[in-house]
Every structure is written in structure tokens, then in C-alpha cells.
Simulated scan of single mutants.
Amino acid sequence: MPYDIAIVGGGPAGLSAAVNARARNKSVLVVSNDYRESPLYRAKQVDNYLGMPGQSGAALLDAYYRHAEETGATFRGGRVLNIMALDGTCYLGIGSEMEEARAVILCTGVSQGKKFPGEAEFLGRGVSYCATCDGMLYRDRPVAVVGLAPDAPEEANFLQGLGCQVTYVSGKRPEALDPAIPWVRAGRLEITGEAAVTALRVNGEDIPADCVFLLRHAVPPTDLLPGLALEGGYVAVDREMKTNLPGVFAAGDCTGLPLQLSKAVGEGLIAGQRAAEYVDQLCDSEVINSITCEKGE
């Protein structure tokens, strides 16, 4: 059975949405990285949250997470790589696996950084966002891993274990990286090739690679859902946190300024409530259609 609501992102907006959807007895899946990796978690003091000045970001996020967990929301670690909506069901690709939900709430925060030169052009032709999904295709072949997420060293080690010839590129060599994997300090990056990727260019030097694995914290919303409308670079929503796609809602920093905790929590509340209402309407419609079909028979 699909979940009623899947929430992409486990920050304040996502956790607020989870609490409010669970309050309406909806099954909820929250997919995110470890919430302790959030910049908010490292804030020593938050003074602009109403009625709770002086709290640390860690204390607030710990409390948010416990609250959502105690309501019965299901949590799953990982990155959502793509979402496809079809006939009232949203299919979420998480690594090499799939989850289903009737509605989705995007709480992805703001995307950090622009695409690298060549990234969009070679997507699916030697650019990948998932080592476990595509690693087997490049066994015994040279690949480059651009480590932009905390779990990137583990995925690079996984590729090495498959037999890929891995080169790891990042700001500094991570401790968790297999010592047998060559490391190159990141600089100006460009993905090059002709019909498919042939190299990752780092500061003008080419690293031969048949695939470049770009392992970020999260995939930007527009890459998750082609056709998602933007406004000023942020996900466009109405006052009910609805996007232009049926069954898809958004909340928090990904919907635009101000990038503030209070806004994220409030929008998460609205998105959770409205997504729950959408699921109820969807279920009512399915019941009516079922009755109509039975009468027709």
C-alpha cells in the first residue's frame, strides 16, 4: 500500500508537515538526510522564534524530530532522485528503490550551488546522481565521484568494491574514504565528452571517466519533477502551498524568502493540512468511481 503522504526533506518545514498530516491520521513517510547535518543544527542561538528565544538550533531540531517521531511518522534516510506522478500516485525513486504515496510535499530547502558545466548536457550519458543505481554499468571502467554529501565516501567505496576504477574529488580527503581510492582536490569542475562523458576536468586537468557521480545532499526540486513551476528561482506555490502539479505541495526555504524558521514551520503546517485534504478528496473520488463501476456491471 502506498503512503498517504511522502515528505521530501526532514528540516523544520518537513517535520511540521509530518506532525500536521499525522494529526489528520494520514500515513506519512519522511525521506531525508540526517537532520543533524542541517545548518540550523549548528546554530548556537536562535532568538527570533516566537516565545522561545535563546534556544540552540540543535535543541530545536531535536525537539522537532522527537515530536514527529512520536506522532508515528515513518523516517527513511536517503536522497530522493526523481518523482513521477501517475494516476493519483506519486512514485519516488530513492537510490535504487521505489516508494509510493498519494501526495508529496517538497521541503528540500534551497539548492546549494549551480550545475557544473556539462552536467545537464550529459545527464543519462555519463552523469549520475546515484552510485547504487548505476554503479554496475561501469564495472572495470574509470569513474569520478564528486563528493558533496556526507555519505559520498561510502558510495565511492561501494563503487570501488564493484570493481570500478574510482577517483574521488572533494575539498579535502574524507577519513571514511578507502585508502586505495585516489583523491583529487576539487577546484573548477567541468564534465567533458562527445556522445557521452569521457572526463572530469578539474582546474584544467582531465581525469578520465566514463561516468561522473555527482553526490549532493539533495536533488533540486526541478530535477526531481520536470514541469514544476518556479518563481524567482524558487518553487511557485499558492497560499495553500500547492504547486502547479496535482498532488504536489511545497513548504519552507524552497518556496522563497524569507529563509526563516517561523516561515518554514508555518508553511509546513499548511502543506501538511492541505495534503491531507487532497488525499481525502482522492479517496472519496475513488470510492465514488468504484460504486459507479459496480452499478455499471
Rank of each mutant, 00 (worst) to 15 (best):
P2A: 08
I5M: 07
I5G: 02
I7R: 01
V8H: 01
V8Q: 01
G9V: 01
A13T: 00
G14A: 09
N20P: 09
A21H: 08
R22P: 04
A23H: 08
A23N: 13
N25K: 11
S27F: 02
S27H: 03
S27E: 08
S27D: 06
L29N: 00
S32Q: 03
N33V: 06
L40W: 06
N48V: 13
Y49L: 10
L50G: 06
G51T: 12
P53M: 07
G54Y: 13
S56C: 11
S56H: 05
S56L: 06
A58Q: 15
A59F: 11
L60C: 13
L61M: 15
A63S: 12
Y65S: 05
Y65W: 13
H67D: 07
H67Q: 15
E69C: 05
E69F: 11
A73T: 09
A73C: 12
F75D: 02
V80W: 01
V80M: 04
L81W: 06
N82T: 13
I83D: 05
A85Q: 11
D87H: 15
T89M: 11
Y91Q: 05
G93K: 08
E97Y: 08
E97P: 07
E99N: 10
E99R: 02
E100Q: 12
R102A: 08
C107L: 04
G109R: 00
G113N: 03
K115M: 10
E119Q: 09
E121A: 13
R125D: 04
V127K: 00
V127H: 00
S128Y: 02
D134P: 02
M136E: 10
D140T: 10
P142D: 10
A144Y: 01
A149E: 08
A149W: 05
D151M: 10
D151L: 11
E155T: 03
E155D: 11
N157V: 07
F158H: 04
F158G: 01
L159E: 01
Q160S: 14
Q165S: 13
Y168Q: 06
S170D: 09
G171C: 08
R173F: 02
E175F: 12
E175H: 09
A180N: 06
A180I: 11
A180Q: 15
P182K: 11
W183R: 05
V184S: 03
G193S: 14
A195H: 07
V197T: 06
A199T: 03
R201N: 07
V202D: 03
E205M: 11
V212K: 00
V212G: 00
R216M: 10
A218R: 11
A218M: 09
P221Q: 07
P221R: 04
T222C: 06
T222P: 05
G233V: 09
G233H: 12
V235A: 09
V235L: 08
V237E: 04
V237Y: 07
V237K: 09
R239L: 12
E240C: 08
E240S: 15
L245P: 01
P246T: 06
G247I: 07
A251H: 00
D253V: 04
D253S: 05
G266Y: 14
G268T: 04
Q273S: 09
Q273P: 05
R274A: 09
A275L: 08
A275W: 05
A276K: 06
L282A: 08
C283G: 04
S285F: 07
S285G: 15
E286M: 14
I288F: 10
S290R: 15
I291H: 14
I291C: 11
C293K: 14
E294I: 09
E294Q: 13
G296V: 15
G296S: 13
